[in-house]
Design a protein around this nucleic acid. Sequence first.
DNA 1: CGAATATTGCAACATTTGTTTCAATGATGT
DNA 2: ACATCATTGAAACAAATGTTGCAATATTCG
Lengths: 293, 293
Amino acid sequence: MTIPFAQTLAARFADLPEQLQVAARWISENPQDVALLSMRDQARRAGVQPATMSRLARALGYGGYDALRAQHADALRRNGQGLAATAQRRRPLDANSTEAAAQALLAESADQISYLSSADNLAAIARAAALIASARRVYCLGQRSSYPVAWHFHYAMSLITDRAQLLDGSGATGLDALSHAQPGDVLFVCGVAPYTRAVVEASLQAQANGLQIVTVTDSPLSPLAVQGGCVLISPTESASYLHAMTPAFALADCLAALVARGDDPAVLARLEDLDRQLSARNTYLSEPQKVSI
Amino acid sequence: MTIPFAQTLAARFADLPEQLQVAARWISENPQDVALLSMRDQARRAGVQPATMSRLARALGYGGYDALRAQHADALRRNGQGLAATAQRRRPLDANSTEAAAQALLAESADQISYLSSADNLAAIARAAALIASARRVYCLGQRSSYPVAWHFHYAMSLITDRAQLLDGSGATGLDALSHAQPGDVLFVCGVAPYTRAVVEASLQAQANGLQIVTVTDSPLSPLAVQGGCVLISPTESASYLHAMTPAFALADCLAALVARGDDPAVLARLEDLDRQLSARNTYLSEPQKVSI
DNA sequence: CGAATATTGCAACATTTGTTTCAATGATGT
DNA sequence: ACATCATTGAAACAAATGTTGCAATATTCG
């Protein structure tokens, strides 16, 4: 915890009267408590009068103890949220330029994805991957801004298995397809605020029917964050007018890759071979002819 | 910041009355402030009565708000303990574990998005945004793994304008819709190796017909990287069996945000207002009733 | 519909907060 | 020793804190 206070104090400490030094020493040894305990509590622990604390703050140039406390509170807050990884790498651009805005937006996405690697989230991802890998069938659901996430996950899964089914509206394969689900099947559902009622209800219904739920959503308090399922939290704050969906997309992509990891190596090898051949030359994929696996 | 409170809350959140949910949501989003602000301050910021905060603490089994605050204070203190906490946060993962693989995949995505901020790319993005902002009509095209990118871009655009059209297969709105395009219209196309023949041909045809092309693709040598258009390069290397599409998705998202930047501020303001209202409460969006803009 | 219950906003409550005042004490310089 | 000044401890202060009781309003259930 580095606080301007520490330097100010070091500079003037020697010139302080005895009691103020006692108080100052306690603070410098317990900086994390300055913002968390009442001043009187701190005085008690430091073994000085409450008034001494106030006097110390004044002696160091603060308006009052609250000012000192505010500074320490900020330091605590900053500790909590790690530094923005990309913040430093910015190149100097006119602040109002489109380029600068683009850079800011992209940096935000990159940071958000970095933060997906919290211990909690990683554990949930691993559990989700295991759940999906052993599922008889995986239903994929997402509407509006979450639709691409569900679609991508389904697409990725469909390359390595036929156990995935997308619950989208077109055709008759909408939410009704869930009625064929059996206990033990998995529902992969993505949704962020404002939540679509149909999606929430389908998830609840699915859980009631004994399905395992893997959720990608924007908050642990989301109505989609059903108890007893795997809940993957994806930040959606954004400087843009839209909620950020890139982290959710990254999560889905990551999840599919992990599921594949446990899958038949032969299938994956052929997929990668095929891919290498195709991309080596500038090969086209014609529309009707599908990839033969 | 992981606090037992978070789990308790997630478990009981759904059963809480409305005001308590508002309070709970604020706490869940601002855990670092619980121990640093007075309860009345927090109530003010969350937009609830002070009494509601007290009641929430009780409803969750705490003796009072102070108990809740103490728990959060401990979490803050633990965070502050420098290296010990950091070591705990970056728990050494077993190299072969699913968690480690997930972390690697996510880190790769984050890095790739960071690299999108090259000077070349930023300039191209800015040009593309300007092009699209002034276009009479924007057609969005992408198939297979690029489909979510095109879909997302179209969805984002469709929230602020009716000038966007998605060229997807279902219905009769496939590639044929391009035949109504006029010179000066823009085609936003996304595609990576192995390129889909139909997409490449449509792009070439579109350019021949005088359309401006904005391309998101994986290489400057891609057949989609037509001369005279805006070419946005998105890396697709991946440790997974799939090509990485997250950077392309981020690009599309960024581009839409930039286009909106130059758009009618009133529309955006209303979008954001609507959004704030909706996400403040636990409002659902019912399926048939569309967002009124 | 009416009764019963749960939820909410408001106002009062006793505590506790940080600060200030004032007299007592100690140190310093002449 | 005396006067001067800084320092200290104890008490008093207004302001703000967390909590609770109560009436008004919504909601649920028969």
